[in-house]
Design a protein around this nucleic acid. Structure first.
Lengths: 291, 291
DNA sequence: AGAATGTCGAAACAACTGTTTCAAAATTAT
DNA sequence: ATAATTTTGAAACAGTTGTTTCGACATTCT
């Protein structure tokens, strides 16, 4: 065969020279290559939020005669690339060098992560999540605490939550001593505490302090008998099983994100409106890069 | 519905009971499964030398409502995805209108998250992860930057990395102006940048600055043409598909954790030794709660 | 300022999609 | 052989496909 240029590479290299709309289309194609092979052009255009004509224009822009040609290329790629499981199995049978030891590790990490996530969305957890939502909606102030490896999950929730509610406080100790942010916590408030074994003193102390002030607690932790979950109104127990030395906080993060999604969904248009306002404010601060 | 019947098996078991023309069609399908996924029904009929109506009749004969359903099944098999989570997610969204709307939402979030994770551990990403590892091992200093919603993922990596390597620097702007930590960055160093659309200016600037100082970049982002991935040594592209308004950083976090696990595994006993030392040091500070 | 250029999306197009209908043909039972 | 039944493919269908066209809009240049 002649010069079989890889259209994907072409798309990347020409990307900068394309018009904004074409970039949008090109980007979607790069991010969803299998859609090109399996779906129709119009369906792809719809998914990429672009009129069909943009796709056609993109074709001629990258020197492809017709969509059919482009699609064929992607279909062949899909067929050439053997089913990944089969491929991996073959590689496994080769001599055990370091490279496929790494691959094995990653594969088993993947499985574990998926297990952790599906466990986190079990029916029981789902109903507890809804309870958690109701508690958050009723709270005056929502404090979020998570130290060490649990900090990212806490942080994630606090960031998203603050985009549509102004009563969220992340207890991270950045403003002086840790726990400073908890001053004034009381009966009508709520503390969301995140942490798994080994439990960090600060987190446990924060929970105990909150309880002493009659503040309700939602615990996102690794066990029903975790010190963080003591006397909690709502215990969100997730797995942190991991192949490596460290615990995995993937499930915890996922649950945090789900909690946010639930709150927004229940908040209705009012919540969306607040998010829009928050984004506008960020735009004023020139936070984002415009296209 | 819930029963994941393999249509191929069904075709074989029912083969004897089919009419001659249908057998002809069934036989072609069994011999050319990828044609089902990639070509149109009429094209398939033409190739099997059978009128289109025979295919339709075959569908109802094996208890399949529509050709679309049949084709979807084969497409998913081609993609090596046991089930089309994304599509089912769409279906659940349609039927939701009741009080169990929350449960439906959570269920579809779960599926999307699992999809994102499995995509993040595809063979291609796995080999890129190993490349990333090598780059990290060779680097003098490792800077990690991630703003906004990407901060937790960056934070996670930095925290874990610091437990067994002392050349990691989290660029978070806590110590004065953002980017201050980048001073002195150079040829032998490495920057790990995390971010998805909408891209935050600070992150892009950090990447550009690093590049200008001839520092290598590893990008953990949502597209090959993301501004963060420009000229990156290694592009770790993960999905951030989400049911809610916000992007999901679950896959990004998971990849970060996997990177740490890989580094530790490759580091051998020396790495474990350093972790032990770090833990001991934390114990001295009375960080953890003992049992 | 106005002209030239590039970009964009709605509409129109013929071709093709998956499906249904119906009468002819082939098979089976009587 | 004749009636009853099944099997078959052409034709018609409404909807969708990929592509082209054209006027509106925005941007750049003079």
């Amino acid at each position: 065969m002649g010069v079989q240029t890889d259209l994907r590479e072409k798309l990347i290299s020409d990307y900068a020279k394309l018009s904004p709309q074409m970039q949008k289309a090109a980007r979607y194609i790069l991010d969803h290559p299998s859609d090109v092979a399996l779906r129709s052009m119009r369906a792809l255009a719809r998914a990429a939020d672009v009129p069909p004509s943009t796709i056609t224009r993109l074709m001629s822009a990258i020197g492809v005669e017709t969509w059919q040609e482009f699609r064929d290329h992607y279909q062949n790629r899909l067929l050439d690339q053997p089913a990944s499981y089969a491929q991996r199995a073959r590689e496994t049978q080769r001599t055990e060098n370091d490279a496929n030891r790494d691959e094995h590790l990653l594969e088993s990490i993947c499985r574990t992560e998926i297990d952790n996530i599906s466990a986190a969305f079990s029916p029981e957890l789902v109903s507890r999540l809804i309870e958690a939502c109701e508690a958050i909606e009723d709270a005056r102030q929502v404090f979020i605490v998570g130290r060490g490896a649990a900090y990212p999950a806490a942080c994630q929730f606090a960031y998203a939550y603050r985009l549509f509610c102004d009563n969220g406080v992340l207890v991270d100790g950045h403003s002086g001593t840790f726990g400073d942010e908890l001053r004034g916590i009381g009966r009508r408030d709520l503390l969301i505490a995140v942490g798994a074994k080994p439990y960090i003193r600060d987190t446990v102390r924060a929970v105990e302090f909150a309880r002493s002030q009659h503040c309700l607690v939602i615990a996102l932790t690794d066990s029903d008998v975790s010190p963080i979950a003591m006397d909690a109104l709502c215990k969100l127990v997730v797995r942190d099983t991991s192949q490596s030395f460290f615990q995995s906080f993937t499930a915890a993060l996922s649950v945090m994100q789900a909690l946010v999604a639930l709150l927004v969904a229940r908040g209705g248009p009012k919540a969306l409106q607040r998010i829009a306002a928050a984004e506008e404010q960020l735009a004023v601060f020139d936070t984002y890069l415009e296209d």
